[in-house]
């Protein structure tokens, strides 16, 4: 028997008020897997992640994590079960220092453990080490995003959920960020990332789904989807798939991660 999925969504509908923004979504993610959710603004990517984290109530369906139903659990309870979450807009504590912010990510552990893990994070994100005493509000966008991800990793999660990590970051910084993430995968961490930046996400993740108007319309290996003209059409809304071949580096990404 294969091991059960780490995260499984069955027929999940959710939304704000009366009108659902997400319609009967099915999704599964195994241990150590990477999945990108890509799609245009307002397609329902963030809503999907919010539903997984218990920030909005489900209108239908169910979500399981490590075999356990998540119904009725608050965001913090889901985090404690082992879902590290870097929400949309990063949601850092602008007036707290980087070190304090990281320690709060493992608030329930003893002080010695918190410090040990904090130092691990400085090893993974060396850029943060000299900034340990800086207030999060004063960091650059890329540094802030690193803190948000590091904070989510402090609880030693089995699954990392990232909402639009590349927003507002310069191309080089995005590349750096995803490079750091790629390192983490060796430890068996599963990653679910919602991205508007399709190329970065498709290159990072093994599998991907395309979200359109609250439906998952396409799914498959990221490599295949990156070459699929329908993705270009759905995602950026350009019927002209030539836009992909006109990319500066040419062709679909092919290097394995």
């Amino acid at each position: 028997m294969p091991p059960p999925d780490l995260l499984r969504l069955e027929g999940v509908s959710a939304g704000y008020g009366r009108v659902p923004a997400l319609h009967a979504v099915d999704l599964a993610l195994g241990h150590g897997e990477t999945l990108a959710i890509i799609g245009a603004n307002g397609a329902g990517k963030t809503t999907l992640l919010r539903a997984i984290m218990g920030q909005i109530p489900l209108l239908g369906g169910q979500i399981r994590f490590a075999g356990r139903r998540l119904d009725g659990l608050d965001t913090h309870a889901r985090a404690r079960l082992g879902i590290g979450y870097a929400p949309e807009g990063r949601q850092l504590f602008p007036m707290l220092s980087v070190a304090d912010t990281l320690e709060l990510g493992a608030a329930r552990e003893p002080a010695a453990v918190r410090r040990e893990r904090r130092d691990e994070m400085f090893a993974i994100f060396p850029k943060l080490r000299p900034l340990r005493d800086a207030s999060c509000g004063l960091l650059s966008g890329g540094e802030q995003q690193m803190v948000a991800i590091a904070r989510a990793l402090m609880g030693r999660p089995a699954l990392l959920v990232l909402d639009e990590p590349s927003t507002g970051l310069a191309p080089r910084v995005i590349a750096e960020l995803y490079a750091s993430l790629a390192h983490l995968l060796d430890s068996g961490l599963a990653v679910l990332v919602a991205e508007q930046n399709a190329r970065a996400a498709l290159r990072f993740a093994r599998n991907a789904v395309v979200c359109e108007d609250g439906h998952l319309t396409l799914r498959g290996p990221a490599k295949t989807l990156a070459a699929d003209p329908r993705v270009a059409a759905a995602y950026i809304g350009m019927h002209d798939a030539s836009i992909w071949s006109a990319a500066p580096a040419g062709g679909a990404p092919d290097a394995p991660i």
């Binding site: 309870a77 985090a79 990063r90 850092l92 504590f93 990510g105 608030a107």
Partner: peptide
């Protein structure tokens, strides 16, 4: 929300 995602109740 940031606090909740740290597992803080």
């Amino acid at each position: 929300l940031g606090a909740a995602s740290c597992g803080i109740d």
